[in-house]
């Protein structure tokens, strides 16, 4: 790829855009995300391993009960094993009934 040079203005702009955006992404991944985000796992709850949101399980409602039943994110999602065994009772299928999902206040 390094031997291919853009010859016209449009190709130059495209090359610049690609190079620029690649740099930005790299910079984001190299930095340490502040603010209480859990970055250790890949993906994390708030941010993925790259510090962004594109690696997250989406939509979160699809993955929510997996987290709940397996206690995978006990600090972010109520855990079904110990603390909140009946949390899911008000909502059978979160993708459809997500408006019934409740918050818990440990």
């Amino acid at each position: 790829m390094k031997h291919i040079q853009p010859v016209n203005r449009k190709a130059k702009r495209l090359a610049e855009w690609v190079a620029g955006s690649r740099d930005e992404v790299r910079a984001l991944q190299d930095t340490d995300t502040p603010f209480g985000c859990t970055t250790v796992f890949a993906p994390g709850w708030e941010v993925d391993s790259g510090g962004g949101t594109h690696g997250l399980c989406q939509p979160i409602e699809r993955d929510l009960y997996d987290c709940y039943h397996s206690c995978y994110w006990p600090a972010q999602v109520p855990d079904g094993l110990t603390n909140w065994p009946s949390w899911a009772e008000s909502c059978g299928a979160p993708m459809n009934d997500w408006k019934n999902i409740d918050l818990v206040f440990p």
């Binding site: 984001l28 995300t33 985000c37 709850w45 708030e46 941010v47 510090g51 962004g52 949101t53 997250l56 979160i60 929510l64 006990p74 600090a75 972010q76 999602v77 109520p78 909140w84 999902i101 918050l103 818990v104 206040f105 440990p106």
Partner: peptide, 15 residues
Amino acid sequence: GRLIVTVPIYARWDR
């Protein structure tokens, strides 16, 4: 600046 808009938290320990 950059902004990350992410998912809610369902267990609110901070309350």
